[in-house]
Simulated assay, not measured.
Amino acid sequence: MGAADVVPGVSGGTIAFITGIYDKLLESIRRVNPSLIGIIKKDGLKAAFNHVNGTFLILLLSGILTSIFTLARFITWMLHNNPIPLWSFFFGLIIVSVNHMFKQVKQWKINRFVSVLAGAFFAYGITVLHPLNLEPTTFNILVAGSIAICAMILPGISGSFILLLLGMYSPILAAAKSVDIITLGTFATGCVIGLLTFSHLLSWVLRNYRDIALTFLTGLMLGTLTKIWPWKETLTWRINSSGEQVPLLERNLSPLTFEQVTGQPALLAYAIAAMIMGIALVWGLEKLADK
C-alpha cells in the first residue's frame, strides 16, 4: 500500500482490496471513536487495543511507513528515468485487479453496470482537472492530508494524484525523503482527521450497498487507467512550488506514435514484461488468498 501511495495515479486502497484486507481495514478504523473511552474505563487498555484490531493496524501502518521511507527515492528515480516500465507495471496491476473485484459482485443488475460507468466517469473527470498551486503552509498541508487520505483508502483514486492536483505532492515527497518531522507530523494529523470521518461513511455503504459500492469502486479504477497509460506526450508544463518544471497537460499516445512524436524509444518489450509482472503479482496474491 505504501509503495502504491507514493505513485500518482495508483491507490493504496486498490492494494488493500487485492490482498483481501479492505473490509478489515475499514472496520478497524471505524472502531476508533469516542466509545473507546468507555471500553478503556470498563475493561482497560488491552481490551480497547483488541477492539480496534491494534496489532493489525500497527503492522499495516508500519509496513506503509517503511515502504514510503524506503521506496520514495526509488519511485522518484523511476518516475524521472524509467517511467514507461513503472507505469506499465501498475497498469497491469490495475487491469487484473478489475477482474478480481468483479468476481466479488454477487448479483449483476442494470444498476450495477450504471454504477461502474458512474465510477469510471467520476475518476476520469478527476484525472483531467488542472492542478492547483497551493503554498505548503501548515494549514494547507493539514487540509491536503485530510483530503488525500480519503482517496488513499478508495480503490482507484490515488492519494498521491490528489496531492498533485492540490500542488502538494512535491513538498510532501521532499519531506518524506528528508524526514522533515514537522511537515510529516502536520500531514499525518490531517490524514487521521480525514480517515476517522470518511471511514465511517465508507464502511456503512459497504455494509448496506455492497454490490453497488464494489462496482462503483471498480469503475473508479477503470477511470484512472488513462492517467497511468505509459506513453504520453506533454503538451504544457508548469513550475511547481519547488521550482521544478513538471507536466501540466498530457495526451496518451500509442507506442509507435510515441516514438515518432517524442523521438524516444517506446521500450515496448520492457513495458510488456512489467505489465506481466503486475498481472502475475495479483494472480499470485489471489492464489495465496485462496489457500
Rank of each mutant, 00 (worst) to 15 (best):
1 M>H: 11
2 G>I: 01
2 G>V: 03
3 A>E: 07
5 D>E: 09
5 D>R: 03
12 G>C: 12
18 I>N: 08
19 T>M: 15
20 G>V: 00
21 I>Q: 07
25 L>E: 00
27 E>C: 01
28 S>H: 01
31 R>S: 08
36 L>S: 05
38 G>Q: 05
40 I>W: 00
42 K>F: 01
43 D>H: 09
44 G>A: 02
45 L>A: 09
49 F>W: 11
55 T>S: 14
56 F>R: 00
56 F>A: 03
57 L>F: 04
58 I>W: 04
61 L>M: 10
66 T>I: 09
69 F>C: 06
69 F>Q: 06
70 T>G: 05
70 T>P: 01
72 A>P: 09
85 P>N: 14
89 F>Y: 15
91 F>K: 08
92 G>K: 01
96 V>T: 10
100 H>W: 08
108 W>Y: 12
111 N>G: 03
114 V>T: 09
117 L>P: 03
119 G>Q: 07
119 G>V: 04
121 F>V: 13
122 F>Q: 05
123 A>I: 03
125 G>W: 10
125 G>A: 06
125 G>F: 13
131 P>G: 09
131 P>C: 11
132 L>T: 06
135 E>K: 14
136 P>Q: 06
139 F>N: 13
139 F>M: 15
139 F>E: 09
140 N>A: 15
147 I>A: 15
150 C>V: 15
152 M>P: 03
154 L>R: 12
158 S>Y: 08
160 S>P: 07
160 S>A: 15
176 A>N: 06
177 K>P: 11
180 D>W: 04
182 I>K: 15
182 I>A: 14
183 T>R: 06
183 T>S: 09
186 T>K: 10
190 G>T: 13
192 V>C: 12
193 I>M: 07
194 G>E: 13
195 L>S: 04
200 H>P: 00
200 H>W: 08
202 L>E: 01
206 L>A: 01
210 R>C: 00
211 D>V: 00
214 L>N: 01
214 L>A: 02
214 L>P: 00
216 F>A: 10
216 F>W: 12
222 L>M: 12
224 T>C: 12
229 W>C: 04
233 E>L: 14
238 R>W: 06
249 L>M: 11
252 N>K: 10
258 F>Q: 08
259 E>W: 11
259 E>I: 02
260 Q>N: 11
261 V>E: 12
262 T>N: 14
263 G>S: 11
269 A>C: 06
270 Y>K: 14
273 A>R: 05
275 M>C: 14
277 M>K: 10
283 W>F: 13
283 W>Y: 14
